[in-house]
Each structure stands twice: as structure tokens, then as C-alpha cells.
């Protein structure tokens, strides 16, 4: 019974020993693959690289609204300018024709 108890204790300690590699994260036995290593380096690099972008939903909405309004304003202004061009070109043509008649 005592022997069984010792065997049980030995087996229990062995299981704990193996489990400890996973539970306690003993680094000396941890094998890091090449891909994992690259991922760690990439993550570190990403932390140090500043990629500008809107910080929150309010900012990003503001930016999208600004871009939309900007393009609407541009197309409206282009439409007005096209009308103006047509007008000044017609005036030029009329002046040209009246000068020719003289």
C-alpha cells in the first residue's frame, strides 16, 4: 500500500513535471520556430513604426465626411466653371464675329 503510494507520488510528480512545461511556461524548454521568431520581430517593428490613421470612430467619420464634401464641392465648382467657360467662349465668338463684320 505504501509502495503503491510511493508509485502514485512518483507518477504524480512526473505528470506535474511535464505539465509544468506548459503551465508554468519554462522558457528553457520552449522551442520557437522560425515563423514565430519572425512574427515576434514583425510585432516589435510594428510597435515602433507609426502608421498614421484616425484614432477613433469620430475622427474617421469626420475624415470620410470631409472627403465626401470636398469631392461634392469640386464637382459643383467644375460644373459652374464649365458654364462660365461656355459663356466667355460665346462672348469671345460674338466679339470675333462683330469685329469681322466691321
Amino acid at each position: 500500500m505504501r509502495l503503491r503510494g510511493k508509485k502514485f507520488l512518483g507518477l504524480f510528480l512526473l505528470v506535474i513535471f511535464f505539465l509544468s512545461f506548459f503551465i508554468l511556461e519554462f522558457n528553457f524548454a520552449q522551442q520557437v520556430t522560425q515563423e514565430e521568431q519572425e512574427e515576434i520581430i514583425q510585432a516589435k517593428e510594428d510597435q515602433e513604426k507609426i502608421i498614421p490613421s484616425p484614432q477613433n470612430i469620430k475622427e474617421s467619420t469626420g475624415i470620410y465626411v470631409f472627403v465626401a464634401w470636398m469631392w461634392i464641392a469640386i464637382f459643383v465648382l467644375i460644373y459652374i466653371l464649365r458654364l462660365k467657360i461656355r459663356e466667355v467662349d460665346r462672348l469671345l465668338k460674338l466679339r470675333f464675329l462683330s469685329a469681322k463684320k466691321k
Partner: peptide
């Protein structure tokens, strides 16, 4: 706005 340059 959509493609800003990053900084290392």
C-alpha cells in the same frame, strides 16, 4: 488622407 506616409 488614405495613403499617409509612415514613420520608422
Amino acid at each position: 488622407i488614405f495613403f499617409p506616409p509612415s514613420l520608422d
